[in-house]
């Protein structure tokens, strides 16, 4: 009996995990399209429609694969690593279900390490091209990452202190059971910190501007400047997935309502809820970008240091202040 139940649970979990990978993989370019559309409308333009990123990807995939002279295997494997890590994260973190069979891997540290792996791969590829832009982009990206990674770790750690586990699924489940915990100072501080780093990590304004190719300001775009054809498509797609994952993580850690437990019946609801939450966050982010100027490069460490401090204070607060 119990074996049957656990088999059913794990089957439901497997279906859930597969569904969330598909949702993230298919939905990420749509999210990017949505954000561009919001920006376009706010700026008084008609916009290209939600599906434009998909059309771009299709166009790029059909082109011939070209690599610059003198680049090695790192340059060619980096997009695969980036996309691969993004897909693995999409499978393990609680996007739509907390009962993923890979739940054991959904540890805070594992997820942060996977995110870092993708970033490092791309930065190495940027260095591998040997061009000035690639190197500059890589060095800036590493500066940002040196502050972003600890902040992600520390702020999620602050959330994990009251739960007593660093498993993301467990954190989400516990928030689901005790919704008032979202209003605690530790949680609020961590939310702000995580939001800032999510923006920085995915290369959005005010840290980076994803639509610029101006050499003084770009970070992410500088690294991928030498990619073309299917490789570029892979990088773009993976970047969109990373954005989706981070926004989803923020959404589900602080507003986990609608997420499915073990029951397969809840799964469609959970997927729709997730899509809606991410769409709202993405839309808000895009709207914010319209009204915000990009920070000067030397102010960026300040912003990220600030978010790190907030994360650290969140941990401090979760230890200092007793939970009721």
């Amino acid at each position: 009996m119990s074996a049957a139940v656990s088999a059913a649970v794990s089957a439901a979990g497997a279906v859930g995990a597969a569904a969330q990978v598909v949702l993230v993989a298919a939905g990420a370019p749509v999210l990017v399209g949505l954000m561009r559309q919001v920006r376009a409308r706010l700026e008084g333009r008609a916009g290209a429609g939600f599906l434009q990123p998909w059309r771009d990807l299709r166009k790029l995939v059909r082109k011939e694969a070209i690599t610059p002279d003198g680049t090695g295997p790192i340059f060619r494997t980096a997009p695969l690593v980036l996309a691969g890590t993004a897909l693995v994260i999409a499978a393990v973190i609680p996007v739509a279900t907390t009962a993923s069979p890979l739940d054991g891997a959904a540890d805070l540290f594992a997820v942060a390490a996977l995110l870092a792996l993708g970033t490092v791969a791309l930065a190495l590829a940027g260095l591998d091209t040997g061009t000035a832009f690639g190197g500059m982009g890589a060095s800036r990206e590493m500066t940002v990452m040196a502050l972003v990674e600890p902040t992600i770790l520390v702020s999620i750690f602050a959330l994990s202190v009251p739960v007593g586990s660093t498993n993301l699924g467990a954190i989400v489940t516990s928030t689901l059971h005790e919704p008032q915990r979202v209003a605690s100072p530790a949680s609020v501080l961590a939310a702000v910190a995580l939001a800032v780093v999510a923006i920085a990590e995915t290369g959005r304004i005010p840290v980076d501007n994803p639509s610029t190719h101006l050499e003084l300001t770009m970070i992410h775009e500088a690294m991928v400047l030498e990619y073309a054809g299917p490789d570029l498509a892979l990088v773009e797609w993976a970047s969109a997935m990373r954005l989706t994952i981070l926004l989803g993580l923020v959404a589900n850690l602080f507003a986990p309502w609608g997420i499915a437990g073990a029951s397969p019946a809840m799964l469609p609801v959970a997927l729709i809820a997730f899509a809606a939450k991410v769409a709202v966050l993405g839309g808000a982010l895009a709207a914010g970008e319209v009204f915000m100027a990009k920070l000067r490069m030397f102010r960026v460490p300040e912003l990220l240091a600030g978010s790190f401090v907030l994360a650290l204070l969140a941990v401090a607060a979760s230890y200092f202040l007793v939970a009721p």
Partner: peptide, 21 residues
């Protein structure tokens, strides 16, 4: 009640600290 008291206390302390930082 005690839970509400502690929650409000924590929130006020958090805001106090945040403004300082």
């Amino acid at each position: 009640n005690h839970v509400l008291y502690v929650r409000l206390l924590d929130l006020a302390c958090g805001a106090f600290l945040l403004a300082g930082v």
